[in-house]
Write a protein that binds this DNA or RNA. Structure first.
Lengths: 148, 148
DNA sequence: TCTAAGTATCTTATAAAATAAGATACTTAG
DNA sequence: CTAAGTATCTTATTTTATAAGATACTTAGA
């Protein structure tokens, strides 16, 4: 096990990361089911939480929906009080979408168990390892488009 | 940057991983669009590729669909020659789903660019780092359900 | 063995969501 | 000032997912 050669190590990593991605998609799907949203809506909420605010156009790009599809999704989320549309001061054709703070908390609540597990795991991870992983993932996040 | 304290490091990691997950969902969505499938179908294909074979029931669990939904999805994928249903020798109520090998390759082709980037990145990652990351992700993959 | 409960998949009617094509309103370059 | 470009929205249609229940098989227990 500690004498794994490079090719096997590489293969092991690819397998682990694919498993991680498949698991993440499933987990987000399950959280969405509990919350009463679709995975697409969940992705939208997650992106909004990371960006703070976004235009419908940005959300179309980060969900893979058409702009028409985004409008319908936003109507749905607005009606259910998850988000709010505010005028975009930079462009009068456009709007900015923001999460309604009370829903932000409520949605986060559904990730509570996994976050607790993650916190516990990180707490017992040696700092040097965590630093290595952070460095590694900083690069991983640039692989997809050359830097989105 | 090298004097980051523990809390900040922790927070940085959580941010990176959330970004990675959101990016992965988007990327899989985009590949699905190119292939002409839905994200759900893509998730099904990915799970099948990892497991080799699976029953519709297992696929229901790993996609978040109802069993009826899985049947419809499998009809769709079977009609488009992505998968095939074979009898389950262990249980006559059940079937086993397998990817048709020619489609396996074709779908993998759409991941080619990212795989190339990933290979190049891994090649220049020090072996000790890669070992740390593998160890780390082996644990990460157990956090979700306590071990799926 | 026989039966009842449980499990695995499938069927179908209905509800929900995504797309495509195009409209409206605004912005920007020339 | 005008034309081209951009951002969002509208709506009809297609596609997908759900829910409720049917069918066929398995398994545990009398």
């Amino acid at each position: 096990m500690s004498t794994k050669n490079r090719a096997v190590l590489h293969e092991t990593f690819v397998h682990l990361i694919r498993r991680f991605i498949a698991g993440s998609i499933l987990y987000n799907q399950q959280v969405a089911d509990q919350v009463g949203l679709r995975l697409t809506d969940m992705q939208c909420m997650n992106v909004l939480e990371m960006l703070g605010r976004a235009t419908p156009g940005q959300l179309a790009k980060s969900t893979g929906l058409t702009t028409g599809g985004v409008t319908v999704m936003l109507d749905r989320l607005e009606k259910a009080a998850y988000i709010r549309r505010v005028p975009n001061p930079k462009d009068r054709r456009s709007v900015l979408i923001e999460i309604r703070p009370e829903k932000m908390k409520s949605v986060q609540g559904f990730y509570e168990e996994i976050n607790k597990n993650l916190d516990a795991f990180l707490a017992e991870t040696p700092e040097t390892d965590l630093r290595t992983v952070v460095r590694f993932f900083t690069r991983m996040n640039t692989l997809r488009t050359g830097g989105a």
